[in-house]
Amino acid sequence: MIQIKNLHKRFGKLVVLDSLDLEIKTGGIFAILGPNGSGKTTLIKSILGMVIPNKGDIKFKQKSVLQQWGYRNQINYLPQIANFPANLTVNELIEMVKNLRPKQAGEQELISLFGLEPFLNKKLGNLSGGTKQKVNIVLTFMFDSELIILDEPTTGLDPISLISLKMIIQKEKEKGKTILITTHIMSLVEEIADKIVFLLDGNIYFKGSVSELKEKTGQDDLEHAIAKIISRKDV
């Protein structure tokens, strides 16, 4: 589904991605992990075209995405921070995003799942962080797209919503969708991820399943395994 070749990205003097190659096949959940500043978000944003790479190419379904925008119709994206125009209501925001995307949307189910009905006519500026994140999730999953990118989807969610979110993700996976997730919650990764892509110093340090990673590091626990990678690197 996605082929990334020789991807370079610098922010000023800071090299964030350094000749990164990555291929993500269709179907399954990919967890993109790595320490802070390893380039997870940059990688995701490069795929979405929000960050313009210095070098390299990104292909989505065999077509380069650089300076393109139409392909984003096939991607659902959940941004890290949910902040919306303060004076629009939830309903208007949903209508607006629907308006921007020329495809079918099924927001009703999601709205009732997260119990957002009472908030539909409230202004976004008056919502709590958690509620905003729920709105954010609704906006992401209401479209039927082949690729779903989630950047820290659990931020600010209460346990019940978290369970709902996991449920949605599983459902999408079953439909054969490709899902990219960045998160710091390892339990979530263990629970749902099919494959792990571990970024370190702007490159891919490891790519494989959770068990492969445990095997490679000799740890039974994912958190420890990851800690080991990072600490070994430091030595």
Partner: peptide, 14 residues
């Protein structure tokens, strides 16, 4: 103020 929202828009096919 609308930076994050703009990011959301940027992920849309526009």
């Amino acid at each position: 103020n609308s930076k994050e929202f703009t990011e959301l828009l940027l992920a849309q096919p526009i």
